[in-house]
Design a protein around this nucleic acid. Structure first.
Length: 1141
RNA sequence: GCCCGGAUGGCGGAAUUGGUAGACGCGCCAGACUCAAAAUCUGGUAUUGGCAACAAUGUGCAGGUUCGAUUCCUGUUCCGGGCACCA
């Protein structure tokens, strides 16, 4: 009786399906376990052998957990929205819904072949309206929420509105300090301000808080194709298809405010059982760093007319009567001391006006125009003084009046309160201040001339210039080493600061950068940049430094501007060298003049008051100085940016958003975004005939009149929308009331084991973590991390085969000839002095007729003589030998008339390991292997290839060995001639030892996902049992249970044949017993000086002394000792013995 | 460029905590069964030298720590993945 896998596998697959054995219940007394595969995108190419690797691993583990008594959730479905289906629709005119459906059917058929234990009653598809209804619903929750930094969680936007109505936003500033809202003068506003705003302004402000918000972002715009391109569709600034130019274009986009979650996404990594590498990748992506944001004011270039700071003797220009710099610092120091020792009245007032409680920033003990004032409200040019009794003295009154008058001259108004007023009637004091603020605000438009100065050192006369340029640095300690500044070319100040002479050069450079992708910009080794003509002033050293722009500074990172310290940063150094900018050395011998040194150990030099301090200590000193002097602030920065959450595409979830309030003729996207009512969900994707983008680059939905007439959003959601929460839907897939019943998600909780590739390290895995946290904050689920344990599967690579073709064209007949040269013949020719001539000679010898007919004077022909490799289908190559007959028939006989130069009568192909892909003709279809060897063999072979986590090339050849193993297993039960051979005899101790060693090994290996070694353990067990001629049911049925997760079909068949009732799927897992494998002695390796020379068998309970005696008596050891006595004998129990001579 | 992995016989890989490098399988070689082939079974197989016993070398490369390193450290080369619109 033979092992007939075809019948066996079909029978059980059928039976399991009919009996619904994989259907999982949401309430069971058993403990739960949730095993999930990463959501597959059903591509048109179908499965190749690389795809099922992770699915087999998860299937094994799910089955193993089931045997161990768990209620296991193991679902599967499809991430069915996506770009490829849309591209296919553009190319072939087939609606994405149709091609996706077809692809899913193929996918499913292929999966079923392999015998997975998915509960298909829970299947979901993201493109199904009953699914994306809930994707839209969750989007609305994001839209209707904001992140409260005080409570550190997402909360309803209604709560925020209440706060704004009662206290303004002083305690909850707008998350993005760079945001600009029309009609809003200050980022901070009071409750009454808020009430005064019109609907559009209020909504614009709320948009700045929403977790899903609308903003503007750059996309790759290809004018010629009239479409937005993905990054990987852009190569060297041109489109991959067609090679048309691609530029950056600003388009309205939706975003997720994932940056608000940066800290939690970072911190909660500690609670996850993910590989360190994966955590590290997420950590780097989040990119938390701490340092300082430093303000550099802008200066005109150094010139005789405008004195350098610190040049006290120079005449001051214009109306700016300045305190000499030396005095300025003294005043600041006084201010600092005063702040530390406030009077009772000062403190009382301070507590009532700090933190923007007035809607205006208030500074205490601030130096203004040569005086220290108690409180300065610079935005509204208001000074508040709180006076003690001595101000009633006559002399002081005169003095105070003079001071008031003096400040007034500068447009500064001063109001004065006595200590008593403040301490006894704070409310009326606050009221007076508020009134005064209003007056000042009204007057501000009439005050001509003076800018709102935050301090008295403006050289320019524009507010923007005075505002200066903020840079973020993680190395404030290097501040004195700053030799220049670099802005991102798209930095908003570039246009304003560029001088007339540099204008043309800057514009040209900005245009160049616009054509570059972010990736290209970061990987560029060549140094490029352009001087703006502007200079910035280092706030610590006063030094004027040139301001450059360069592509290596990205607008989205930090402030979009860096202070360049060439002696400490490699890129800055290259830049300085390239543009001949002098380098200041602040690290002494640590800098060799050739290379930057990013050390933190150096003792600072050339660094003003920092001289002599070790760099790592200096950072703190600098930050302190910056904060004390209001030249900068301590800052935690994240590299992570808010996630772009819209696509200008058709095949994705529509946004449940309507734009209202703009005039009727306005395009969609103007006015105010309002959410659809939840009862209107799902907002179904309309049918389209064309997938062309809208006129301004919007998605195809912009072309549908019925859509735009309703002012519905024309963008669609990106691929990761549906996949960010799908693991929740599997728990409760048919619920029409909620996305997932809270009771059900409480039962299933987190995904216990999540299996998928590292390519999702930062995309999908971060987004779904964020969504989970939002849903948790809003109380919809009870856990804040989706995937407890993560297992990364490696890629299965293809092993490509190449043939080498020489193309020749006849001069006389115009006929072309294709000659294929075998790999090693070609190698020989290539290694000769003149490869071209060698190949010519080969052709002359082998095909004189062809040779004589060709004219080799043609340059093109000469070049073509060096053949380029051509991919050939791996299925017509045996090892490296090409099947020439099959090759001639390949591709509809394209190579039917090919000529070959062979070696030993064979054509040997070239080989290379590459990504498995149809275009490389190196794909292997699992269906064919299952047909030939069966699903059980296929499953075990995929596992046997090597560790799941590791990438490895596919080689079909080894599959025979696994198949042989299963046949050998079968023969323990049934003999071809004799039929049934299994017996009910009692097992021997040897047999029990094999069994229990196997139980231990397989169980341990499965637990640690070392499936390849588990397969090998099965092989060893079957080999041993064959040697022992063991056919005993008691042993064999245990092996079958162990095998069930790996080869379920054969295990079930034999289990039933042994006369067991019930499915092997639910059999009890064998229990390992130590007593069967205990040994009394062990064969120890004996090394002399670390080199193994012999073995000695020693009792396990031997003492050091006994061992030493045995060792010294050993003949081999004596030989190596050569009469000397050993220095030391190392005896590690159960391991080895080493004799040191 | 930056971040994360990986590298062990002809091939895939094993060695779980620093302790016999190469388990298991493929391939290859030899043998048994057979008229023959397939299938199956048995034995051998890191490299070099040697009839053998045995010896030397050997885990990408160069160093280091250690009685002992595939394993830990430093540097380096090559290959794979990611880098924000592929999913």
């Amino acid at each position: 009786m033979e092992y007939n896998f075809k019948t066996i596998e079909q029978r059980w697959q059928q039976k399991w399906k009919v009996e619904g054995v994989y259907k999982v219940s949401n309430n069971a007394s058993k403990p739960k376990y949730y095993v999930l595969d990463m959501f597959p995108y059903p591509s048109g190419a179908g499965l190749h052998v690389g795809h099922p690797l992770g699915y087999i691993a998860s299937d094994i583990f799910a089955r193993y957990k089931r045997l161990k008594g768990f209620n296991v959730l193991h679902p599967m479905g499809y991430d069915a929205f996506g770009l490829p289906a849309e591209q296919y629709a553009i190319d072939h005119g087939i609606h994405p819904a149709v091609s996706t459906e077809n692809n899913i059917n193929t996918f499913r058929k292929q999966l079923d072949n392999i015998g997975f234990c998915y509960d298909w009653s829970r299947e979901i598809r993201t493109s199904d309206p009953s699914y994306y209804k809930w994707t839209q619903w969750i989007f609305l929750q994001l839209f209707k929420s904001w992140y409260n930094r005080d409570t550190k969680k997402a909360e309803s936007i209604d709560g925020l509105i209440k706060i704004l109505e009662t206290e303004g936003n002083g305690n909850h500033p707008i998350p993005n300090p760079k945001s600009q809202i029309p009609n809003l003068k200050s980022q901070i506003f009071s409750a009454s301000d808020w009430k005064g705003f019109d609907e559009a302004t209020q909504q614009a402000i709320l948009m700045e808080y929403r977790l899903a918000y609308c903003g503007y972002g750059e996309v790759n715009w290809c004018e010629a194709l009239g479409t937005v391109l993905a990054n990987d569709e852009v190569i060297n600034g041109v489109s991959e298809r067609g090679g048309y130019p691609v530029v950056k274009k600003k388009l309205r986009q939706w975003y997720l405010r994932i940056t608000e979650y940066a800290d939690r996404l970072q911190g909660d990594l500690d609670t996850l059982e993910w590989s360190d590498a994966m955590k590290e990748m997420q950590t780097n992506w989040i990119g938390k760093s701490s340092g300082a944001e430093i303000k550099f004011s802008l200066a005109s270039p150094p010139s005789p007319l405008l004195p350098e700071r610190g040049d006290a003797d120079s005449p001051r220009t214009g109306r700016f009567l300045k305190t000499a710099d030396t005095n300025w610092h003294i005043l600041k120091e006084y201010g600092r001391l005063n702040r530390q020792n406030p009077t009772a009245a000062e403190d009382a007032l301070w507590q009532n006006i700090r933190n923007n409680k007035l809607g205006v920033k208030v500074r205490r003990q601030h130096a203004v125009q040569g005086y220290i004032v108690d409180f300065a409200l610079l935005e509204v040019k208001l000074i508040i003084e709180v006076d003690g009794e001595y101000h009633n003295v006559e002399q002081q009154k005169i003095y105070d009046e003079a001071r008031t008058g003096y400040l007034k001259e500068f447009g500064l108004n001063l109001i004065r309160f006595s200590n008593d007023e403040v301490l006894n009637d704070i409310h009326s004091v606050i009221g007076k201040i508020k009134d005064e603020i209003q007056v000042q605000k009204k007057n501000s438009s009439t005050h001509a001339g003076l800018p709102l100065l935050s301090k008295e050192k403006g050289l320019g006369d524009e507010a923007k210039r005075e505002a200066g340029v903020k840079v973020y640095t993680t190395r404030p300690d290097t501040i004195f080493g700053v030799d220049f500044m670099v802005l991102a070319p798209e930095h908003e100040l570039v246009g304003q600061i560029t001088t007339a002479e540099q204008k043309a050069a800057v514009e040209e450079y900005v245009a160049y950068v616009k054509s570059r992708s972010e990736r290209e910009r970061m990987s560029e080794k060549k140094v490029t940049g352009c001087f703006t003509g502007a200079y910035a002033v280092n706030p610590l050293s006063g030094k004027h430094i040139p301001v450059w722009i360069s592509e290596y500074v990205l607008a989205g990172y930090g402030t979009g501007a860096i202070m360049a310290v060439p002696c400490g940063d490699e890129r800055d150094h290259k830049f300085a060298k390239h543009f001949n900018i002098p380098v200041t050395n602040i690290i002494g011998d640590y800098y060799n003049g050739e290379e930057a040194n990013p050390t933190k150990e150096a003792i600072l030099q050339n660094s003003g008051f920092l001289d002599g301090i070790v760099m790592k200590d200096a950072a703190e000193v600098v930050i302190q100085w910056l904060e004390d002097n209001e030249e900068g602030v301590r800052k935690v920065n994240y590299k992570m940016r808010d996630a772009a959450f819209s696509r200008q595409r058709y095949w994705g979830e529509p946004f449940p958003i309507v734009w209202k309030g703009a005039s009727l003729n306005d395009a969609v996207g103007q006015g105010i975004a309002y959410p659809l009512d939840e009862s209107e969900l799902p907002l179904e994707l309309p049918h389209v005939e064309s997938y062309k983008p809208g006129a301004e680059g919007e998605g195809p939905l912009a072309n549908i009149e019925t859509w735009t007439a309703q002012h519905l959003e024309t963008n669609t959601m990106p691929g990761y929308a549906g996949s960010s929460w799908y693991f929740l839907r599997y728990m409760d897939p048919h619920n029409n009331e909620v996305f997932c019943d809270r009771k059900v998600s409480d039962y299933w909780n987190q995904v216990d084991l999540y299996i998928g590739g590292t390519e999702h390290a930062v995309g999908h895995l971060l987004y779904s973590r964020m969504w989970t946290k939002v849903l948790y904050d809003l109380g919809y689920i009870g856990f804040n991390e989706p995937f407890k344990k993560l297992l990364n599967q490696g890629m299965i690579q293809g092993s490509s085969r190449f043939v080498y073709r020489v193309d020749l064209k006849s001069n006389t007949s115009g006929k072309s000839e294709q000659i294929f040269i075998s790999r090693n013949v070609l190698t020989e020719a290539e290694q000769s002095e003149s490869p071209g001539n060698s190949i010519k000679d080969l052709i002359r010898l082998k095909f004189p007729d062809i040779y004589n007919d060709m004219d080799f004077s043609d340059i093109a022909q000469k070049i073509d003589l060096i053949p380029a490799p051509i991919h050939v289908d791996v299925n017509i190559v045996d090892g490296l030998e090409l099947n020439i007959e099959a090759f001639k028939k390949w591709r509809n006989g394209e190579y039917a008339n090919a000529k070959f130069i062979l070696e030993d009568g064979k054509y040997i192909c070239g080989a290379e390991v590459e990504k498995m892909s149809k275009s490389k003709f190196n794909t292997v279809n699992p269906d064919e292997l299952v047909l030939k060897y069966g699903a059980d063999t296929f499953r075990m072979y995929e596992m046997f290839l090597g560790p799941v986590e590791q990438s490895k090339p596919w080689d079909t050849k080894g599959i025979e060995g696994v198949h042989r193993f299963l046949k050998k297993l079968w023969r323990l039960f049934y003999d071809e001639q004799k039929g049934k051979v299994w017996t009910e005899e009692q097992p021997t101790t040897e047999e029990l030892k094999t069994l229990h060693r196997t139980i231990k090994k397989v169980e341990e290996d499965t637990e640690r996902f070392s499936f390849n070694t588990a397969v090998s353990a099965f092989m060893i067990a079957v080999n041993e049992l064959s040697d022992l001629q063991c056919h005993k049911k008691e042993i064999l049925e245990n092996i079958l249970v162990l095998l069930t997760p790996y080869a379920p079909h054969i295990a079930e068949e034999l289990w039933q044949r042994l006369g067991n009732s019930g499915n092997v799927l639910d059999a009890p897992y064998p229990v390992f017993e130590e007593k069967y494998i205990i040994e009394s002695s062990k064969s120890y390796p004996v090394a002399i000086n670390g080199k193994t020379r012999t073995d000695i068998t020693i009792a396990l309970d031997a003492t050091q002394q006994q061992v030493e005696e045995m060792i010294l008596a050993n003949v081999v050891v004596q030989k190596w000792l050569e009469g000397k006595s050993p220095k030391r004998i190392i005896y590690v129990k159960n391991r080895m013995i080493n004799v040191v001579v």
